[in-house]
Design a protein around this nucleic acid. Structure first.
Length: 571
RNA sequence: CGGGGUGUAGCGCAGUCUGGCUAGCGCGCUUGGUUUGGGACCAAGAAGUCAGAGGUUCAAAUCCUCUCACCCCGACCA
């Protein structure tokens, strides 16, 4: 493509809307333009990159034995009512009626639709296993679209679904997809990390997220510097101290005492008032679990993890108690709750509480706290459990090394769904013995637009994008420094045609503008190999080769330039 | 949805507090010319419902009321 004829518009200045590097560069390099909040137009350069990503994904899915289909974005609401997820998704789903009054929605994902398909088509174990995938636009009415293409209301997703006769089969299908994901992200040049994750709205029990470390990421994940442990912050388990159940009898227990703490309803306030550090304090959080009151005890500097509560207690109906309920249950106002003297309420304590002595708790009275509170002596708990969010330097649950917390962009997520959907939607098959079983499912998603943003977050400099070879919009850019000069123009033309003849994707900057703009633009849009036809051509008949992201530049004769370019591309 | 902020030419912004003359600047764009190894130079030009509606006033980008859009922080996700 000749730049003079291409629909490429770059921006010199940063658009006011953009905050993060990838968003700024995608706008500046002319990859995308915003239509409205959460929806983006892909311009030719952006579309080329997207297509490259799609090609990689498609090749690897096919290689892993998955078969491509295409399901509608427009879906009947009734299937979603049948699975019970319409309520769960709630406002996240774009819904509307068609002219007949039938309820429709724009698919936020496709589990219901494939399961329904499989229900109708698969009747025998002989047809299993099978994995289907598609590349489709998803619609989610996000509460807050942001960071450009990273979180949008409309986005492209590769979603795959595996169907097996049993758990073992699912394990195999899951493993295949997991490996395919690794290959995809490697080919896209991403530094990624697979971590254990929450299953969330998808359901199921095992899942892994693929994270690209980036300060722009919206997720936190935990990694161990010494072993393989890696997890989303929400599922990360802090390793337990070697003596978690330390009986505090042997320790120097001080007498329990009530102290006045006027107006101090937060940990910080109490900490300052009593001059006691938060790790010496215990907060008592009152929740309603299936409408029953529960107290959760957490060390002052720790944070409760509501996801863990759900798993532990086997219900999703968990809400923080309001001030009235707290007063009714504890006898004291919000902000002064404590475990001592609580009745008719289950008390669960985080493991970290077990090794604490002489700590501060609320007194269940206005403006009062208890000091020197001790477990067992002063109150009992129903059980000890892992209730909290991991913090930096917590011990690794596998090897006790100090855990690290990083920020990342979630670019893919794989789930073992089991029979959640096949049961609720009635997708079953007959086994060898003629018995009916629900199919065992897995689902596997990749955010295709996010791969682009993540790649840029991973790889850019002051001057612009530095594309990984596999997803660059063009492999080579030719800069004709002064296209008015016949020798330069003719050589460029010949070079352009020679490279095209070798099936190399080349962008020829033939514009009759000052050289500086061309160099700046080439850097901005990040083409991996830059060939400059200019001064060196006029003086010595040489063409300069420079790789984006490297500083050195070498000069070659015409023929050498072609072979060297090919070498760089294939190597 | 709660909190914070912005809206003036395609893009980036000044002007708004303290109302007043033809609404300005940089980039980009058009035409002609000189240029061409890191966002050139000269000359001439085009381009604005000052987010929208209503109000106050002799007079509104500027003051008041409402509405809309967009961005940032929080809960949610690929």
């Amino acid at each position: 493509m000749k730049w003079s004829q291409a629909f490429i518009s770059t921006l010199k200045e940063n658009p006011a809307d953009a905050e993060i590097v990838s968003h700024k560069l995608m706008l500046r390099a002319g990859l995308i333009r915003k239509l409205t909040s959460g929806t983006y137009i892909y311009l030719p350069l952006g579309q080329k990159v997207l297509n490259k990503v799609i090609t990689v994904v498609r090749e690897e899915m096919d290689r892993a034995g998955a078969q491509e289909i295409l399901m509608p974005a427009l879906q009947p609401a009734e299937i979603w009512e049948a699975s019970g997820r319409l309520k769960q998704f709630g406002e996240l789903v774009f819904q509307f009626q068609d002219r007949t009054g039938k309820k429709n929605l724009l698919g936020p994902t496709h589990e219901e639709i494939v399961t329904n398909l499989v229900k109708n088509e698969i009747t025998s174990y002989r047809q299993l296993p099978v994995t289907l995938y598609q590349i489709q636009t998803k619609f989610r009415d996000e509460i807050r679209p942001r960071f450009g293409v990273l979180r949008s209301k409309e986005f492209l997703m590769k979603d795959a679904y595996s169907f097996d006769t049993d758990e073992k089969g699912l394990d195999r299908s899951y493993q295949k997809m997991y490996e395919a994901y690794c290959r995809i992200f490697e080919r896209c040049g991403l530094k990624y990390k697979a971590v254990e994750a929450e299953t969330g709205l998808m359901g199921g029990d095992v899942s892994h997220e693929f994270m690209v470390p980036s300060p722009a990421g919206e997720d936190l994940f935990v990694t161990c510097p010494k072993c393989t442990y890696a997890s989303n912050i929400n599922t990360a388990i802090p390793g337990r101290p070697t003596n978690p159940e330390t009986t505090n009898n042997s320790l120097n227990l001080q007498p329990l005492q009530e102290v006045k703490t006027p107006g101090t309803t937060t940990i910080e306030a109490v900490s300052q008032f009593l001059k006691t550090p938060p790790p010496q304090m215990v907060k008592t959080l009152i929740y309603l679990v299936d409408n029953q009151p529960f107290a959760f005890l957490i060390r002052g500097d720790h944070e409760l993890n509501p996801f863990k509560l759900g798993r532990l207690l086997g219900t999703e109906n968990i809400v923080m108690a309001d001030a009235k309920t707290i007063e009714k249950v504890t006898g004291g106002p919000l902000g002064f709750s404590g475990p001592v003297g609580l009745k008719n309420i289950k008390i669960l304590a985080d493991y970290a509480i077990a090794s604490m002595t002489n700590f501060v708790t609320g007194a269940n009275k206005t403006d009062a706290h208890l000091i020197n509170t001790n477990l067992k002596r002063d109150f009992q708990v129903e059980r000890l459990a892992d209730l909290r969010v991991v913090v930096e330097n917590d011990p690794c649950p596998q090897c006790a090394a100090q855990l690290q917390i990083s920020r990342g962009i979630e670019i893919g997520h794989v789930f073992k769904l089991g029979t959640k959907y096949s049961k609720s939607l009635g997708a079953s098959f007959l086994n060898e013995k003629g018995q009916s079983h629900p199919v065992v499912m897995g689902c596997y998603g990749i955010g295709l637009n996010r791969i682009i943003a993540a790649a840029i977050e991973n790889s850019s400099d002051q001057n612009g994008i530095i594309w990984p070879n596999q997803i660059a919009p063009y492999q080579v850019i030719i800069i004709s420094v002064n296209p008015q000069e016949p020798k330069i123009n003719e050589t460029s033309q010949k070079l352009y045609e020679s490279l095209q003849a070798k099936n190399i994707e080349v962008l020829w900057d033939d514009r009759n503008i000052s050289a500086g703009i061309k160099f700046k633009d080439a850097d901005l849009i990040g083409i991996p190999i830059r060939l400059t036809v200019g001064k060196n051509m006029m003086e010595k008949g040489l063409i300069d080769i420079k790789q984006r992201g490297r500083s050195e530049q070498k000069s070659f004769s015409f023929d050498e330039t072609v072979t060297e370019t090919i070498r760089l591309i294939s190597g």
